[in-house]
Nucleic acid binder design. Structure first.
Lengths: 232, 232
DNA sequence: GAGGTTTTCGCCTGTTGGTCGAAAACAGGG
DNA sequence: CCCTGTTTTCGACCAACAGGCGAAAACCTC
């Protein structure tokens, strides 16, 4: 046992599951390792926690090396991964984050970095496959009771586009009727008044919407067992 | 800068917000520090992450020093607290957990340890007040869409007792009618068939219930925007 | 203008949660 | 033994909400 291990000092990493929706499937941002351990495998972006930053600042700093931070619309903490055998020695503890990139953004990425559909991941390094799944699960859950869709969608979009994004994230079909009604009733979606140009094969032009807020908010009906009389 | 700081090695602690419901208010388990820093202030139970354990195993180990682990019905990870200035140097990162103790348990605790109502906390050490609030917020949210009440209630209980626990945790009155209907419909509550003895002033004897499962489960209606046809 | 395509909107239905009041089941006192 | 007070339970009603369907609207090309 080395001196630092005896003192209980541990290397702390931050990692980000950065997701983007495509018409067919969610994609996660991975980079290919070029050295041992796990040479050649694909890993989540991240790196060491610095001495003067908290974990969120750290993950943003490391993310900036792989993707334009302006394109990342939302970042939130996921969970700590600390199994002593999650990687080869020496031991490393990682705080994982979820990052979301709107579907219309196509940020430039370094040569070792690429988007991979989550249902056909390459061989991943360490426990990064598990962490990716945890990120997607979190997104799916929050789509139901928050306005987190703002981080997947362009500024302006039609209900059809939004339905495609929700369907890709959730993995099942979504009713456009219901989606519009639920999100507008909750006040997360507001009409812009303008309409999009119809497609090449015609069709009624789609009304365009935007999210009322572009930061995370939990919507009301989340809380069953409410206080009486709507107050407290 | 010392050698270990240059290497990015950081002390990692685990902390637990252990909550218990009383008729008047939630209580959190705190112990009084007997040395600097923050000598005399009250702190959450916890300690260093060991070399051969993950964070959950670690928090259970440290918790066992303060309270009988058999009385802790549920433990889950909350969040990482990593502000470089959350305490005096040297820097420490902490993974916080939420622990729940049923209301009928009254575990023996060491002399430096005591339960404190969360609405009248003593002067707390470091950021432990903030962490306590985060724990209570998590509990309140999960009461709505999971069966987490199992960790607050005795094995067998009446609806009135359960209503008291929910009211204490949520901070507002709860309808007994609605609570019973919602929880039984979701299948988290099942009647035992037996009834309790009436109180000293009479009254109809209360039917007794128990939770169908004593491990965390997310209940269905949580997911709005369901897949079509109830399948998929 | 006719036919095809896409989106939008109104209507209906089943489920859920909130509220209220009546009824049930007990104790104690006259 | 009946009446009152107390506590719990249950049924009924209502409002809000999500899911589904089909008609209508608004565009295209031919």
């Amino acid at each position: 046992m080395t001196r630092v291990e005896a003192e209980g000092l541990i290397a702390h990493d931050v990692l980000a599951v950065v997701l983007r929706m495509t018409p067919s499937s969610p994609e996660v941002l991975l980079w290919q390792r070029a050295r041992e351990p796990h040479d050649g495998r694909w890993a989540l972006p991240g790196g060491r926690l610095g001495a003067t930053e908290d974990v969120e600042a750290s993950v943003r700093r490391h993310l900036a090396e792989k993707v334009d931070l302006g394109e990342v619309a939302h970042v939130e903490q996921l969970s700590v991964f600390s199994d002593p055998h999650r990687g080869p020695a020496p031991r490393r503890v990682a705080t994982a984050f979820l990052g979301l990139v709107p579907s219309d953004a196509d940020p430039a990425v370094p040569g070792d970095t690429a988007w991979h559909p989550v249902d056909a991941l390459p061989e991943t390094a360490f426990d990064h496959g598990t962490i990716t799944t945890a990120g997607l699960d979190r997104l799916r859950a929050k789509l139901s009771y928050t306005n987190i869709g703002f981080a997947l969608a362009p500024e302006i979009f039609s209900i059809s586009e939004l339905r495609g994004l929700y369907a890709a994230a959730l993995g099942h079909r979504v009713s456009a009727t219901n989606l519009q009604r639920v999100l507008t009733r909750r006040g997360v979606l507001v009409p812009t008044g303008s309409t999009a140009a119809p497609g090449p094969s015609g069709g009624r032009p789609a009304a365009l919407f935007r999210f009322s807020e572009r930061s995370l908010r939990v919507t009301d009906p989340f809380a069953t067992l409410r206080p009486p009389d709507r107050d407290c």
